[in-house]
Design a protein around this nucleic acid. Structure first.
Lengths: 219, 219
DNA sequence: CCAAAAGTGTTGAAACTACACCCATGG
DNA sequence: CCATGGGTGTAGTTTCAACACTTTTGG
């Protein structure tokens, strides 16, 4: 009954740092691909669901939990791992900016820019490309960008997040009109202090489904 | 290294029969869920990729190959199979109408309407619902409907296919305008005979990517 | 000539893009 | 009072939905 196929989960952990879209990678300590970078991952335990396994991997790397995690794709080519047959269910996680600790750089884990990736182990480069495509796609249609921001944020911050992820610049007025019209965020009443004119702080609307399929948000 | 987790693939095999969207199901001969219906599936062999496994399952059930197959989602809840921990990578396949043989009803396999499903084993009802959602979604944005039709088809047939799958009726003129404008099909020059005025036969354009993301094709 | 199905255009409404200036606050 | 970032409106264009009649063939 056992199919001699190992099952792992790998997690693409996204965060916005310094106006850059970054992923958390670990440097491999052992062959194969020793010294190269890889997505955090691990075997699925018999007593945990796939999503639990992904959450565990995320928590082990970042001490973060209860963030947006979503299944990406399952990879199972025969020779993707030279040690044997491994099927990997990949997830992507969106870690809100304030929870991104500088991940005690002890255990060879580091944030790397999605736009300047190091050489990756296995087929992980391919998987990351796919994850970026999916993130961009979801951003355009479903308004999931909040998940990378603090609970309260300004529209300008939100726009920057979108621009960073999509790799294009957006028109301020059109962006605001559309994102508000989509009805997924609302004013908190609070405002920022500091430089320049104070900005309204917005938050994600709890009663809005995060997966609303809006008409394309951006050009 | 072996994780004590079994890996299977299950395939949602879609076809259009009698102006109805149907799936090929098999009746279970043994416990658990003996006598209930299930999606065709099987263990992934160590020497085949996931997609190969899905193609094999499809071929075993239908003697059809080289059709559109696409990964759907991976299910791995702990108790979805009472016999043990099973992770299932699900695929969906679109079988063009003329290849749908009446599947020698010998081995307890049968086509069932998606709109009137029997009681299903495991979590298969849920999976089928998900597959339908995905198929509809893809249809709206990516023009994959051809895969369920013969190589040459009339616009009316194509429209019927869309209507059957989406469960709504569409305006003839708007449908034609949009589907042609999307540029994924072209005239063959041939026409139908038979009842009424002959209709132009169209075919899928080989040089068009089937996955073109068009602006929403339908309302 | 009649039944059956194919084919075709227009109009009003809504959505989209592009674009430039004034506003509120802190120092 | 000035530097900094926040905030707002419109016009021209494109896209969209709704809708009914004429054409071609076979029997």
């Amino acid at each position: 009954m056992n199919s001699e196929v190992s099952v792992t989960v790998d997690v693409v952990i996204f965060a916005l740092r310094d106006d850059d879209l970054q992923v958390l990678l670990v440097r491999r300590q052992h062959p194969p691909f020793e010294g190269l970078w890889a997505m955090p991952g691990g075997y699925v335990k018999p007593q945990e669901s796939l999503e639990d396994a992904a959450a565990r991997v995320l928590y082990d790397e970042t001490s973060v939990r209860d963030v947006h995690i979503e299944q990406l794709y399952t990879f199972g080519e025969i020779n993707r791992d030279p040690r044997g047959r491994v099927v990997t269910i990949t997830y992507f996680a969106l870690v809100p900016a304030p929870l991104v600790l500088d991940t005690s750089e002890t255990r060879d884990a580091a944030w790397k820019s999605m736009y300047n990736l190091p050489t990756m182990a296995f087929d992980h480069h391919y998987i990351l490309d796919y994850a970026l495509k999916r993130l961009r796609y979801k951003l355009e249609y479903t308004a999931v960008g909040f998940q990378l921001l603090p609970p309260e944020f300004t529209l300008t911050k939100l726009q920057h997040a979108y621009e960073t992820i999509l790799g294009i610049s957006l028109d301020k007025r059109n962006f605001r009109r559309r994102i508000l019209q989509a009805g997924v965020i609302e004013e908190t009443g609070r405002r920022t202090g500091g430089e320049g004119r104070p900005a309204m702080l917005y938050c994600f609307r709890e009663d809005a489904v995060s997966e609303v399929k809006t008409r394309r948000l951006f050009p």
